[in-house]
Nucleic acid binder design. Structure first.
Lengths: 166, 166
DNA sequence: TATTGTTATACTCTATAACTATA
DNA sequence: TATAGTTATAGAGTATAACAATA
C-alpha cells in the first residue's frame, strides 16, 4: 500500500485536475503502457517480417523450441512458451505440413510424442530467425548494444517467474 | 543485411544444430520475445487489477486522455493511443454510461465532439490509477526505481515514432 | 487421479468497409 | 476530397470444457 490515496483532498491548494498527485502525465509514467505500445509495435513488425515466409512469431517460437531441444513434447513446449495445449495443435500441424519436424512415440510413455526437427526444419528455423533478426535490428535501431542487453535483462526480470499456465 | 547468412555451411566444423551462429539460445536472445512475454504478463495483471472496478486497461487509457486533456476529440484520442476510431465507440459509451465524461458539440466544426471529464470522471480516474499503480508495483517489484525509469525510457525509444494509424 | 494430445467452441481484441454529416 | 463519428462484421488470438488413451 502507498501513503498517498486518491481520497487525499483538501490538504493541498492545487487543482484536483492534473496535479502531481493526480493524473498529470499519468499514462506516460506507467511502464505498463510503454510495455504494451512497444510490444505491439515490435509484434506488428515481426508479423510483417515473417509473412512472406509463411510464418508467424508464435510459429517461429515453437519451431525454435523443437530445434533447440529436440525430443521435447508439445505439452512441455506449451509450458515453456506460456500457451495453452489446445492452441499448439494447429501450429504443429502447420509446421508438420511443411516437413519441419517429425513426431516420435515415446516407448516408455505412450501418451506423449517427442518432436524432432528435420534437416529442413533446422534450416528453415535459421532462415526465419534471420528475418526476425533483421526486423529486430529495425525495432531497436535507436538503442545501443548495451541498451539492448539491458532492456532484455529488465524485461526478463518482469516475467521470468510467471507461474500462470495451463 | 548481416555478414552471416543461414546458408553458410561447411565453413566451420561445428554442428549445424544448436551452434553459436545458428539457433542456440536464439529465442532467449530476442528482445522481441521478452517484450511480448513481459507485456502479456503485465497486461494480465492490469486486467485483474481493474476487473473489480469494472474497467480495463484500454478504458483507463481513454479516460486518462480525457481527464489529462479536456476538450479532446475521440479521433484525436485514437491517434494518440494507436487504436481505430471504430473501436473507441463502445469504450466511450461505457465511460459515458458511468457518467465519467460529457460530450460537447464544437461550435466551429459540427463534425466533432469535444470530450470533458465530469468531477466523478476525474475522481474515478484517480481511483483506477491507484489500482494500476499498485499492480505495477507488483510487476516491477524486482526493479529499482532507476531501472524502472531506464526501462520506460528504452521502451519509449522503440515505439515513440510509430506512424501506423487509422 | 493426473497428464497428453485433441476437438469444438466461446470470447475478446482488432481490422476493414461502408455510411451520414460536415468541412 | 477529406475528416468525424458510427455501425456492422470479419478475422485472429486466446480461453474453457470435454474427450479418449495412458500413466
Amino acid at each position: 500500500m502507498n501513503n498517498k490515496t486518491s481520497s487525499d483532498k483538501g490538504t493541498d491548494g492545487a487543482s484536483d485536475l492534473s496535479d502531481a498527485n493526480g493524473v498529470r502525465e499519468a499514462l506516460n509514467l506507467l511502464v505498463g503502457y510503454h510495455l504494451r505500445r512497444a510490444s505491439v509495435y515490435d509484434l506488428n513488425g515481426a508479423v510483417a517480417a515473417l509473412e512472406l515466409a509463411g510464418a508467424r512469431p508464435i510459429t517461429l517460437s515453437v519451431l525454435l523450441c523443437i530445434v533447440e531441444s529436440p525430443g521435447r513434447t508439445s505439452a512441455d513446449i506449451c509450458r515453456n512458451l506460456g500457451i495453452k495445449r489446445a492452441n499448439i495443435v494447429a501450429l504443429l500441424q502447420s509446421l508438420e505440413a511443411k516437413g519441419l519436424f517429425l513426431r516420435s512415440n515415446d516407448p516408455t510413455d505412450q501418451r506423449i510424442q517427442r518432436l524432432y526437427p528435420t534437416k529442413q526444419g533446422v534450416q528453415t528455423a535459421q532462415e526465419w530467425l534471420e528475418l526476425i533478426r533483421t526486423h529486430e535490428e529495425r525495432t531497436l535501431k535507436r538503442l545501443s548494444q548495451a541498451e539492448r542487453a539491458e532492456l532484455r535483462r529488465l524485461l526478463q526480470m518482469i516475467w521470468e517467474d510467471d507461474t500462470s499456465q495451463d
